[in-house]
């Protein structure tokens, strides 16, 4: 079972964004939070509309989590909050990837359902963080996708990897989403390779983050002629390991 979420269309998103710009504190947005907006729409078919109880439960859970991290005061341990929120959203929303790719849906979450939390996480946010313009920057959308791309049902904790890959690294992957990140298989195996290299001490002599960035650059060079998606996991891991080592080797030479 998966749900269809309301989508906040552009004009209304802009309107709310403009209104909220004048609100001094996220606490003042608690009253603006709603489970419904008159101008929200649903995709016509393909599942059940999310019941209002589920929306309230979701907002309650997110709000509780925010409170644990300092809401309404300055966010504490924002990275930790993001990881926990990524788990929460991915586990509880019951939404399909194609539905989750709808940017308007995320705008509904940030501007109607949870404006207080959104504006607390990113005070005075640029539009991308809360509107329907860019999922890769959206306060909630980017986290769901982060969880979706790395979650691995083969692991005891399917979201374990969220903790391995930091936000900056993930942004690297995500900004190359179309090239490589679009494939959960590649992302998952790349992370597997990366933690393996780290355990083997192969990253000891280099700047971890720079090495990761270089690996992505090398990867970017081979994907035009190597279809990594066509491979089974064994061959894929082999290729990814080779790519990573090539990048690391170049840094040491």
């Amino acid at each position: 079972m998966s749900y269809l979420y309301p989508r906040l269309i552009g004009g209304r998103a802009q309107q709310l964004f403009d209104e909220f710009a004048a609100v001094p504190s996220p606490n003042d947005l608690v009253d603006r939070a709603r489970t419904h907006d008159d101008s929200a729409v649903y995709v016509a078919t393909g599942g059940a509309r999310v019941p209002v109880e589920k929306l309230s439960a979701l907002s309650t859970a997110v709000r509780d989590l925010a409170r644990e991290h300092g809401f309404p005061h300055k966010a504490q341990r924002a990275g930790e909050f993001d990881v926990a929120l990524a788990r929460l959203l991915h586990r509880s929303m019951e939404v399909m990837p194609a539905e989750a790719a709808a940017r308007e849906m995320w705008a509904f979450l940030s501007l109607v359902l949870l404006p207080d939390v959104a504006y607390w996480r990113f005070p005075a946010p640029p539009g991308d963080r809360v509107m329907h313009t860019d999922i890769t920057r959206h306060v909630f959308g980017r986290l769901w996708w982060r969880a979706d791309l790395i979650h691995d049902l083969a692991r005891e904790d399917p979201y374990e990897v969220l903790e391995i890959l930091g936000e900056a690294d993930f942004d690297q992957v995500y900004s190359r989403r179309k090239q490589i990140g679009a494939s959960p298989t590649i992302v998952r195996n790349l992370i597997r390779v990366w933690s393996e290299l780290r355990e083997n001490g192969e990253l000891a002599l280099v700047n971890d983050r720079q090495a990761f960035r270089n690996t992505l650059m090398v990867l970017n060079r081979v994907v035009p002629f190597l279809s990594l998606n066509a491979l089974d996991d064994h061959a894929l891991v082999g290729e990814l390991r080779r790519i990573a080592r090539q990048a690391i080797g170049r840094m040491q030479s």
């Binding site: 399909m96 990837p97 194609a98 989750a100 790719a101 959960p184 298989t185 998606n229």
Partner: peptide
């Protein structure tokens, strides 16, 4: 393009 996903 709808989901932005790639798969085999």
């Amino acid at each position: 393009t709808g989901s932005g996903l790639r798969g085999r």
